[in-house]
C-alpha cells in the first residue's frame, strides 16, 4: 500500500517538475548567452498553450498512427516512472526490472519514429532516420550498462541496484551512464534528430496543438527519468538523506547539463554515431572488470 502511495506521489512530482526544470535550464542558457531569458514557468505556459490550440492534420498522414504515436511515447515514459522512484523511495519493483525500463525508453523512441514516418513529411522522415540511428547506438550502450549491472548485482531487479555497491566497475559504470544519459536526453550536440536550422524539428515538424505538447512533454519526462535513475544508483537508503540528496541532485544535474549544452555546437549524425561507437569500448571495459568482481 505504501508503495502505491509512493508511486502516485512520484508520478505527480515528475509530471509537475519536468517542465519546470526545463524552464530553469532555459533561464540558465539565456544567462550564458547574456540574455534576460523567459520566466522559469515559461515551459509550463508553452505546454498549456499548446493544449488549447487546434491541431492541423497533414494531408498525407496515416491518421491513426500519427495521432496515437505521441500518446504511446508519453505513456511509455510515464509507465517507466512506476519502476523508478523519484522523490519518495518505493516503486512497483515486483512488476518490472531494469530491462523493462530500457525497453520502455526504446519504445518511446520507436513511437516518435512511427509518428514521424506516418506524417508523410520528408523532413520528418530524415529526422526519424536520425532518431533511429541514434536510438540503436544508445541501445547498445545501455546494453553494456545493463549487462554490467546484472553481473555486479547478480540480479536485474531495480531494488537490488539502489544504491549500487561502491566498486571500481560501478564508478566507471556511473560515469559512463552520465554520458549516455546526456546523449539520450537529446541535448546539443546530440539533438541531431530535431536540428531546427537543418531539418526543422525533424520528427515533430507536422505535429501541432496537443500532439506537439505531448511530444515535448515526453522529452522533458524522459530527461527527469534518466536523472532519477542515476540518483537512485548513488543515493543512500536512509529516507531523509535520500530525499535531501534527491532534491539537490534533480536540480543540480539538469543545470550542469544545460551549462554544457550552452557551450556546444551540433554534431552531424555520422560523427555522433562514430563518437558513440568509441564510447562503447568503455562499456566493454566496465563489463569485463565487473566480471572479475572489482
Amino acid at each position: 500500500m505504501n508503495a502505491i502511495i509512493a508511486v502516485i506521489v512520484n508520478v505527480i512530482f515528475a509530471l509537475l517538475y519536468a517542465p519546470l526544470i526545463d524552464g530553469v535550464e532555459r533561464k540558465i542558457k539565456a544567462r550564458v548567452q547574456r540574455r534576460k531569458g523567459p520566466p522559469i514557468q515559461q515551459t509550463w505556459y508553452d505546454i498549456l498553450k499548446l493544449f488549447k490550440k487546434e491541431e492541423i492534420m497533414p494531408k498525407d498522414a496515416t491518421k491513426s498512427i500519427f495521432i496515437s504515436a505521441p500518446f504511446m511515447a508519453f505513456l511509455s515514459v510515464l509507465i517507466s516512472y512506476l519502476f523508478v522512484p523519484t522523490i519518495l523511495p518505493g516503486a512497483l519493483y515486483f512488476y518490472g526490472d531494469i530491462i523493462v525500463v530500457v525497453y520502455l525508453l526504446a519504445f518511446s523512441s520507436i513511437a516518435f519514429f512511427l509518428g514521424a514516418f506516418s506524417s508523410g513529411n520528408p523532413y520528418a522522415q530524415v529526422g526519424a532516420n536520425r532518431e533511429m540511428s541514434l536510438a540503436v547506438v544508445e541501445e547498445i550502450l545501455l546494453a553494456f550498462i545493463v549487462g554490467s549491472l546484472a553481473v555486479l548485482n547478480r540480479s536485474l531487479m531495480l531494488n537490488k541496484m539502489f544504491p549500487l555497491e561502491i566498486k571500481v566497475s560501478s564508478i566507471i559504470l556511473l560515469a559512463f551512464y552520465l554520458v549516455v544519459m546526456y546523449i539520450a536526453s537529446a541535448r546539443v550536440p546530440f539533438d541531431i534528430a530535431e536540428a531546427e536550422p537543418e531539418i526543422v524539428e525533424g520528427p515533430f515538424i507536422e505535429y501541432s496543438g496537443k500532439y506537439l505538447a505531448m511530444c515535448k512533454y515526453t522529452i522533458f519526462l524522459k530527461r527527469i527519468l534518466l536523472t532519477s535513475l542515476f540518483l537512485n544508483f548513488v543515493l543512500p537508503e536512509n529516507v531523509l538523506w535520500r530525499t535531501v540528496g534527491y532534491v539537490i541532485g534533480v536540480v543540480v544535474i539538469p543545470v550542469v547539463l544545460a551549462m554544457i549544452e550552452a557551450h556546444m555546437g551540433r554534431m552531424r549524425i555520422d560523427q555522433a554515431v562514430r563518437f558513440m561507437k568509441r564510447l562503447s569500448v568503455i562499456g566493454i571495459f566496465a563489463w569485463v572488470i565487473s566480471l572479475f568482481g572489482w
Binding site: V32, P189, D191, A195, P197, E198, A262, G265
Partner: peptide, 9 residues
C-alpha cells in the same frame, strides 16, 4: 546553423 546558439547571441 551549427547549433551553437551561445556563439550566435
Amino acid at each position: 546553423l551549427l547549433g551553437f546558439d551561445t556563439g550566435f547571441m
